[in-house]
Amino acid sequence: MSAPLLSLERLSVSYGRVDAVREVSLSVPEGAIVAILGPNGAGKTTLLSAVMGILPCRGLATFRGVPLAGRPVEQRVADGMSLVPEKRELFVSMTVEDNLRLGGFRRRSTAGFAESLDAMWALFPRLAERRMQLAGTLSGGERQMLAMARSLMSTPRLLMLDEPSLGLAPLIVKEVFRVIAELRRTGVSILLVEQNARAALDLADHAYVLENGAAVLEGPGEALRRDERVIATYLGIRAVAS
């Protein structure tokens, strides 16, 4: 088997004296969808932020075999990583189209720029309808779509999605997961942080469960879907049962 696209070894992240992520090791193979599950406050968002270079961390992280330490966020974007953050972080006072164009900022003068833009309009027809609207006027679902499209404009090898279904109505959640499934076919690898465990496990090739900053469970998506411990992690049923 070839080396994984992203590999983390004993990665830890601290806020002051608090360890938000404790020695997590995981890997994302080329072309795979890997899910990170866990209850609120388990350290999932922190983990993604550290991988993207927004937060400092300890341990070894490599992307395409190259250590990530010392590389600033924008360099990681150029390397082929992209993060769709939990809060979307859109340019709210700018149009949908400008948001997308800025997503491809680093490849603004390449030949493929216009094609990527067209590909995004095709992948997200809702956005095409609203291309001249300000991003701040979009609905929650549309914002999530725009955030994903903006990320994809940089033609990433690894797309990291932080809670893409957060706060969205069930119908729109389905739409988001449809797009994720579609992206798999384009060959982009995906690291998915999700609360919606069932939908994520339906899609993921492999999944990790985080609790209190540490990886407590891992396995193929299929297997975890039937694991009672996943449910217990979320609802604390163990405590009552014991």
Partner: peptide, 17 residues
Amino acid sequence: KALQATAVNRLGAQLVG
């Protein structure tokens, strides 16, 4: 627009490179 974007959302600007 990139300068404007940095002014609107610093983190967002960093995330698009």
